[in-house]
């Protein structure tokens, strides 16, 4: 079996949302001598990118997207373990703390962003909805997060994003974490106004912005 066939099988496993198959393809590809980052980049990531595109086109839906991101995690775990076994540094998934801000219970958009981020190899700590500034910061400290993501749908609750940034500032933690805001009423202007590092227009854009923030 050639490398191209492995890449295709890997992408197909993700698109089929098949966790077991994804792990199995990863193991067989590694056994056939394909480097872990090669099978990830040329196979699995191609599949998950296609899933994200199909989601945005209304051809794939949230349950499938979540299952695909789970399959992606399984494949990534196999690849990461192989790197560690070979004596390399096991790739540690960068931690992101993400939630819907206090006073806001709208979490559909946030859930989609979580699925996209997990699919892209991030260790996402989903704090859920109605999350206080203190909880955001405590969790970020606990898991040594790289990024804090704050979602707010409403024009009233988006002010809570500003409060979280102010709390970071007060605690001397501004700069320790990259910060990104998103949600229905947020804009780049708003992010600039409150001093957030980035604004995510939608799930795909949020992944791109976080990749850029972390130099991926």
């Amino acid at each position: 079996m050639g490398n191209e066939e492995f890449y295709k099988e890997a992408g197909d496993a993700i698109k089929a949302c098949d966790k077991e198959k994804a792990a199995d393809v990863a193991k067989r590809a590694l056994a056939a001598g394909i480097a872990p980052d090669e099978i990830l980049k040329k196979g699995f990531i191609v599949g998950i990118t296609e899933m994200g595109d199909l989601f945005e086109r209304g051809q794939v839906f949230l349950p499938e997207l979540v299952l695909a991101s789970d399959a992606m995690s399984a494949a990534a775990a196999v690849c990461s373990a192989a790197v560690a076994e070979a004596g390399g540094d096991e790739e540690v998934e960068e931690a992101i703390v993400l939630g819907t801000v206090q006073g806001d219970v709208h979490d559909i958009g946030k859930t989609i962003v979580v699925a996209f981020l997990r699919a892209n190899g991030y260790n996402v700590h989903d704090l859920g909805r109605d999350v206080s500034a203190d909880k955001f910061i405590a969790k970020a400290e606990e898991v040594d997060a790289k990024v804090i993501g704050m979602s707010a749908l409403l024009t009233t609750t988006m002010r809570e994003q500003k409060r979280i940034l102010e709390a970071l500032e007060k605690q001397g933690l501004k700069g320790k974490y990259k910060t990104i805001v998103g949600g229905g009423a947020s804009t780049q202007n708003w992010a600039d106004q409150i001093g957030a590092d980035a604004y995510g227009e939608d799930a795909n854009d949020s992944v791109k912005k976080i990749n850029a923030l972390l130099g991926r």
Binding site: L62, P63, V66, L67, D70, D107, I108, K110, T111, V114, A115, D126, G128, R129
Partner: peptide
Amino acid sequence: PADLLPLM
């Protein structure tokens, strides 16, 4: 569902 989906 936003709580159930991540639990598969």
